[in-house]
Amino acid sequence: MSRLETRFAKLKGEGRAAFVAYVMGGDPGPEISLEILRGLPGAGADIIELGLPFSDPMAEGPPIQKAAQRALLAGTKLRDVLGLAAVFRKDDNETPIVLMGYLNPILSMGFELFAAEAGAAGIDGLIVVDCPYEEGDSLTDALDANGISLIRLVTPTTDDARLKLVAHRTSGFVYYVSVAGVTGVKEANAADVAPAVERVRKATGLPVAVGFGVKTPQRAAEVARVADAVVVGSALVDIIAESKDPVREVLASAKALGDAVRAARK
């Protein structure tokens, strides 16, 4: 079993959803980013989603746009993010790491080379925002060869017929984008999330993570009652923008979110 499958199986046994913490790789710089990464499992993150900085993040709202800019200004390259994951893996061989980014830096490195190096760094999954399934075959081939799941986004605009096509080569989990919009702006409507998760689960048989629009522990708990995983990103990276002690504050915020997810179904 892959790390993702193992993790979801374990949480299913515990009867609770996974808390997925998103941080941008290299934000605000390599040392702090690594420290945050290393602290996240202890703070309650079941899965880490690690952003790949890109100059033109079309689907991100201001918090993650700014996080990408900070990481790029600090000189973060794609290989540096893989390097962070590799260092993290030395001490933690259980917490799954899913990369989330845009196609061009991966295309620029080359799909085969990227997949091989990401696999070696202990990466478990990849989300590429601007690569719909129609354009994804050669990338999926390269990832498959290295045991990395390509995790597809499903949105409120994805109808049932399309859902089956999107899910076709998806593995690990499906990421349900709970609002039509960019990250970190609109808030998800909990009442809409439950039927949507059910629809995705039925079509794919895979665990369903919900993100884009989950900011507070309260909302995370609501989503955790109906979904298999809850992703929080913008609320965490926003702290880095403002905090004098980002490691402590990000981990404290992650702990509050993780606790809320853990208590949600009790």
Binding site: M58, A59, L103, V129, D130, C131, P132, E134, E135, R152, L153, V154, T155, P156, T157, T158, D159, R162, V166, V177, A180, G181
Partner: peptide
């Protein structure tokens, strides 16, 4: 049919926009 001029073009957009 895939919007390609040789290797160029295509539809590289977020899933939300694909149906659109």
């Amino acid at each position: 049919a895939n919007g390609r001029f040789g290797d160029y073009g295509g539809r590289y957009v977020a899933e939300t926009l694909m149906p659109l």
